[in-house]
Design a binder for these strands. Structure first.
Lengths: 196, 196
DNA sequence: CGATAATAACTGACCCGTCAGTCATTATTA
DNA sequence: TAATAATGACTGACGGGTCAGTTATTATCG
């Protein structure tokens, strides 16, 4: 078996198991079982349980964010980019719910302890949102009184929260449709009449 | 020592320790040490480590949400109520950062395993937001095309996310001011010009 | 090519530190 | 001094990590 292939299998198994049982509750032997190997083998590819979690965050999250950045770059104009960002993000959640769940649930915990690139990845993602907002302000399509730090945070958290609920409640509704609501809410707010 | 007082001391110590080290990493003896007692004593008041966590969620979260509900009821009109909700929520986060952090970080993990009232408390909180939104739609101050489920979720998550960031980055900016930005963003969106 | 040697991949029994929970003993209180 | 509360030494389960041994794969040679 190709070593890289095996490594990926283990990583994939770990994503599934950690998402299902939680990092602390999951045993390394559970991961091994899921991957169809003996648990000793895991240690030929990763030096510890923690290292395994770390690899998921840095490698897989990195790929996700690369893809988002790429997709955002295919459209022009801040408003379109924001729409695309929200849409792509929600598509990714639908496509990789386990990975998303891991990031949402475990990264928080671990974020306090793991000195790692994982935090940087989140920063990178927030950076993308902030760039879009700043470009929008420059284009005068977004209000210049808008606090970029706060808005990017609540936008990110809002999508995250929607995803969390969607996952925890067992994928109950069409997430894709929700993307639309999110976009509209952030662009125009929830007021019925435009007052000014 | 009054038994109820001791119980509360232990609960308070547990909040601090669990928030600082995380539930799984924290030892019962850490909690006992923080409370200034021997670790055996903890078991005179709580039947297990898990029971301790559960008590925090149900009792403390319950108090928090009662307070929010109470505060929202002091004003009239959906818009004012929404503003008050956001403001009160943010005040609570500033006042009880450890408890908030616990709820934000640990409840997610544990939510999957713990069969408990903790989940019901979150539901209750979302219910408050939804009532306000529905009232607003009835009053015609909020758009009637608004998806109450989605908006309440992203509103809740947005505040949560802001709090998380604020806590994890070591309370860097004035959270109170952020309340304003959140309110404005949700009411009016981020667009500069009112288009319709 | 078949046999044998060398290497690499894998296995799972075992080791050992950790820590939740217990309980015999001691201190406190009424 | 009887009842109640608190203590902390102790126990046993648990699971991460190791490594001697096994199996599969590839290279070498007659």
């Amino acid at each position: 078996m190709d070593p890289e292939r095996r490594r990926q299998d283990i990583l994939q198994a770990a994503i599934a198991v950690f998402a299902r049982k939680g990092y602390y509750t999951a045993k390394v032997s559970d991961v091994a079982h899921e991957a169809g190997i003996a648990h000793g083998t895991v240690y030929l590819y990763f030096k510890s349980k923690e290292d395994l979690l770390l690899a998921i965050f840095t490698e897989k999250m990195g790929e996700m964010i690369d893809y988002i950045q790429e997709q955002v770059a295919t459209v022009i104009g801040a408003e379109s980019q924001l729409k695309r960002l929200i849409q792509v993000q929600i598509e990714l959640i639908e496509t990789y719910p386990e990975l998303t769940e891991l990031i949402l649930v475990e990264l928080r915990q671990s974020g306090k302890f793991l000195r790692s690139e994982a935090i940087d990845q989140i920063q990178r993602y927030l950076g993308i949102i902030q760039s879009i907002l700043e470009e929008g302000i420059a284009e005068k399509v977004f209000s210049d009184s808008l606090d970029v730090e706060v808005v990017s945070t609540i936008l990110y958290a809002g999508i995250e929260g929607l995803a969390t609920r969607w996952i925890l409640e067992g994928t109950p509704y069409a997430l894709g449709q929700a993307a639309d609501t999110v976009t509209r809410t952030f662009l125009d707010g929830i007021r019925s009449a435009r007052l000014s």
